[in-house]
Design a protein around this nucleic acid. Sequence first.
DNA 1: ATCTAGTTAGTAATCAATCACAAACTTATA
DNA 2: TATAAGTTTGTGATTGATTACTAACTAGAT
Lengths: 196, 196
Amino acid sequence: MRKPAELRKAEIVATVLDLADKIGPDRVTTGAAASAIGVSQAALFRHFPTKAAMWLAVADHVTEELTTAWDNARADEPVGRLEALVAAQLAQIMAKPALPMLLFSRELNVGNEDLRAAFRGLLMKFQALIVTEVARGQEAGCLRRDLAPADVAILLTSLVQGMAIRWSLGARDFSLIQEGVRLLNVQLGLLAVKRD
Amino acid sequence: MRKPAELRKAEIVATVLDLADKIGPDRVTTGAAASAIGVSQAALFRHFPTKAAMWLAVADHVTEELTTAWDNARADEPVGRLEALVAAQLAQIMAKPALPMLLFSRELNVGNEDLRAAFRGLLMKFQALIVTEVARGQEAGCLRRDLAPADVAILLTSLVQGMAIRWSLGARDFSLIQEGVRLLNVQLGLLAVKRD
DNA sequence: ATCTAGTTAGTAATCAATCACAAACTTATA
DNA sequence: TATAAGTTTGTGATTGATTACTAACTAGAT
């Protein structure tokens, strides 16, 4: 079945990401993706010059999705926004379990330098959002002021990554977002100004 | 050059791990390993029946190295031991950057279920060591008692993993062990009983 | 003389990418 | 409106490279 190129491109991107979830990023061959879509393997190269270009398109798509998820994580207090940001990130990882694996995939780590740069940029952007909100929380007087915002941000984003790894490598038998938010609140409790 | 099988086996294991550091776990082909050693590709199959068996031997080797590193991380107080354990872990990762990547490698995640089990066991063992030491620290009165040791352990191991990811994806332009221990102490400061 | 650790020279499988070509859609003109 | 011309999206067959693994043979030490 013929489709306009725009639609087909989007379909390829979605399928590559979906297959990456199911069988792992490095197992996604052009043949596998094509047969999952229902076209010939050669058809993919009508829309992308190389397989690396397909992955870059996937990165673009993920960037958009993550960015809007971050934008939608609103709250009136800085601490609430921190929780919303982390929850949004965990939700995205749950929905697309390939994301953590992609960071260590062969595709990203060898040969596809642009893909690597794209995802590094994403992580840095998230980190920057957290730093901003931590600083705001300190100014508002709800977070301890004796720690550098950048250090606090590393503690918080590390928690996200650590939870993602536990969930990804394990049997995925717990709710990533539920456990993640619970432990985030444990950490935020440690970071709150002491009221006693 | 002929070598006794024992030596050659060890050489193969070391070379596979070393190549994994340099070019990534999934790029280590039998041909690449063989030519790095200086023998023909077929020679490897004199010592291991399959490539998967080579990786299992690598896992055994890593298990031994990590275990002795943990054993040598001694200290008289629980908090000092926590720091020593984390420092030892970070040092191992710095020395063998393939370790985090291996967790998400294709080799481990598809087909080689034994390899996956081996590394999952290693992670769980480390986690258990941390839990034990946190509980001891709480009993000794140097760590806050209002948190579950398992939760605290997740915060600490997540920090290790988060730092490893930052270091691994970035330009590896900072000392993983130095920055890691610094941030560990920030976290441990948050967990210490308030003396004021 | 007999293992033992090696070799050279293969195999079958898998993969990304290319090729000539065909069908379906679009546009312009008679 | 009908149709010719051109463009877009597809296919099947194939290629060349790479891979893990095997088979048949060989040099050297005990």
